[in-house]
Design a protein around this nucleic acid. Structure first.
Length: 581
RNA sequence: CGGGGUGUAGCGCAGCCCGGUAGCGCGCCUGGUUUGGGACCAGGAUGUCGUAGGUUCGAAUCCUAUCACCCCGACCA
């Protein structure tokens, strides 16, 4: 591409409403423009990267045996009413009416349509397994769109749907997609991890998220560097930090701790480690009777070690809390404990409460907790001696870096990630949409469905979040808008430079290298700054100075300085660097 | 949805408190001088001041409504 025949507009300053670095850089580099909240135009420069991402996905999906089709953006409400998602999806589902007043939706995903296709088109086991995919525009009316293209309302997604005749086949389809995803993100040059995930409300069986590692990611991941264990922090299992309960060494006593309502303050006042304290968290549930009336309020006391944090998702899995819980009000706390928050503990509550101890707390000895009396804490508290051993012990805390890995093979580390792909097996649609086929015996049986998504436009942002510096974007080769930029110094006024640059450009294009020739005749500083902002990974500078000796300069976007290379060798050098991994 | 903030040229911002009909930097256009890291000089173009009402002789400025955009969002005892 000759730049004079392309379109480029860079900005020195990012628009004030850009909230994350990837969005700022893409806007400055002229790759995207915002049209409305969470809705972006992909400008020519940005679209080139999008197309490269799509092509890699397409090649690997095809190689994995998936078949491409294209389903509509606008879908009739009837299909969504059939699965119940018309009612369940909520405000994120954009609903529209046509001129006849019929209800339609703008698709946030395509399970309904593909299931409709599957039940109409697939009748025989001979047609299975099959995996359909498309790369299509989606719309989810996010409550609060942000993070640029990473959480837009309109976005592009690759979604694939597999249909199998039995569990074994479904597992194979799942693994084929898992491996395809590994190849896709590897080819894109991204650092990522496959993370075991909660199946969430789609309700499947096996599920992994593919997370691009970046400090600015929305999700925290817990993983074990010495094994393949990786899980969302919300999901990661926290083991008890001590396997058995220690023997009591101290007598229990009440210490004045005036004004010290936080574990940190109490530990500091008493001169003990924060790990010796126990934090009390009070929840309330409102159970219903058979008629659905609230029968009263039940109060729960959850005990967590002072330096740990409650994991509400885990708490929600405790019997009695499954139906939903809330944090107790201050009035409820005073009523049940006899004192306000800050001095609460499991001993001597005013009214009975349900006590749940975290696994680690259950094994603590000589610990410190609130005395249920304003301005007092208890020290040297021991289970079994001072109070009954906890009736309920559960994993209710968030894991932290340094915890033992649940697989017993090391220590957990925590990093942030951006979810760019998700694979699910065993979706419920075969039942609700009657996806039946005739098996070898001629009997009808339900198919097994899996679904597999990749956020195409989100990948664009995630790649930048992972790969940028103070000057701009640093694209991995495979998804850069251009692989190589030729920067001639004095293109408009130096015949020798112009000829050399033109010839080099033709040579690179001739061998299939995606090169751009900056033929604007701009000053070097302007050219360099623009291309460093855009993040083209390889740059060749053609100048009078080097040309006298038959040389040009090569510089990778990550290099601090250029290397002199004979003009006759630069083509081969670039070809060597751009060999596909 | 609740709370807060901001809307002035393509981008970044000032002007608003204290009303007098809009300005700065970058970018853009023309000419000239420059030319290996965002050049310089001279000249120039671009705004229904988010929108709609109101107050006033007069509104970017004050008032009301409305829209858009941005930020924050339980608790962590």
């Amino acid at each position: 591409m000759r730049l004079s025949k392309f379109f480029l507009s860079t900005l020195r300053e990012a628009p004030a409403d850009a909230d994350v670095v990837s969005q700022q850089l893409m806007m400055r580099a002229g790759m995207i423009k915002k049209l409305a909240a969470g809705i972006y135009t992909y400008m020519p420069m940005g679209l080139r990267s999008i197309r490269k991402i799509e092509n890699i996905i397409r090649e690997e999906m095809n190689a994995a045996g998936a078949v491409e089709l294209l389903m509509p953006v606008i879908q009739p409400a009837e299909l969504w009413q059939e699965t119940g998602r018309w009612d369940e999806y909520g405000a994120e589902l954009l609903r529209i009416k046509d001129r006849h007043g019929r209800d339609f939706i703008v698709q946030p995903t395509s399970e309904e349509v593909i299931a409709d296709i599957a039940r109409n088109e697939i009748n025989s086991h001979k047609q299975l397994p099959v995996n359909f995919y498309h790369i299509q525009t989606k719309f989810r009316d996010e409550r609060r769109p942000r993070f640029g293209v990473m959480r837009g309302r309109e976005f592009t997604m690759k979604d694939a749907y597999s249909f199998d005749k039995d569990e074994a086949g479904a597992l194979q389809s799942y693994q084929a997609m898992y491996q395809a995803y590994e190849r896709i993100f590897t080819r894109m040059g991204l650092v990522f991890r496959a993370v075991r995930a909660d199946t969430g409300n789609i309700g499947g069986k096996a599920s992994h998220e593919f997370q691009v590692i970046a400090d600015t990611g929305e999700d925290a991941l817990a993983y074990c560097p010495t094994s393949d264990y990786a899980a969302n922090v919300e999901m990661a299992e926290a083991l008890a930090l001590t396997s058995t309960r220690g023997q009591p060494n101290q007598a229990m006593s009440k210490s004045p701790t005036p004004g010290k309502a936080k574990c940190e303050d109490v530990a500091a006042l008493l001169g003990i480690a924060l790990q010796r304290t126990v934090k009390s968290i009070v929840l309330a549930t409102e159970p219903l009777d058979k008629e659905g009336n609230v029968t009263g309020v039940q109060i729960w006391l959850l005990l967590i070690r002072g330096d740990h944090e409650l994991n509400e998702i885990k708490a929600g899995k405790i019997d009695g809390l499954k139906a939903g819980f809330r944090f107790a009000t201050e009035a409820e706390i005073v009523e049940h404990f006899g004192c306000p928050p800050g001095y609460l503990g499991p001993l001597g509550t005013k009214k009975p409460v349900y006590i749940v101890a975290d696994r680690t707390v259950a094994n603590m000895s000589d610990f410190v907790c609130g005395a249920n009396e304003t301005d007092f804490h208890l020290t040297g508290v021991n289970w079994g001696r001072d109070l009954p051993v906890p009736a309920q012990v559960a994993d209710i805390r968030k894991v932290v870096a340094g915890d033992p890995s649940p697989d017993g093979k090391g220590v957990l580390a925590v990093q942030r990630g951006i979810e760019v792909g998700h694979v699910f097996a065993g979706l419920p649609y075969p039942e609700s949409m009657k996806l039946m086929f005739a098996n070898e015996a001629g009997q009808n049986q339900p198919m097994i469905m899996g679904c597999y998504g990749i956020g195409v436009t989100r990948l664009l942002g995630a790649a930048i979040e992972q790969n940028h510096d103070a000057k701009g974007i640093i694209w991995p080769d495979a998804i850069a808008p251009f692989s190589v930029v030729i920067c001639p110094l004095g293109y408009d006024r130096n015949e020798g430079v112009k000829n050399a640059a033109d010839n080099l450009y033709m040579e690179l294009i001739g061998v299939g290298i995606d090169a751009v020739l900056d033929d604007r005749g701009e000053r070097p500083g302007v050219m360099f700054a623009d291309w460093e902002l855009i993040g083209v990974p390889h740059r060749v500078t053609v100048g009078d100075r080097g040309l006298k000796d038959g040389n040009v300069e090569y510089q990778h976007r990550r290099d601090d300085k250029a290397t002199v290379v004979p003009l006759t060798e630069i083509g081969a050098l670039l070809r060597g660097k751009l060999v596909r991994a």
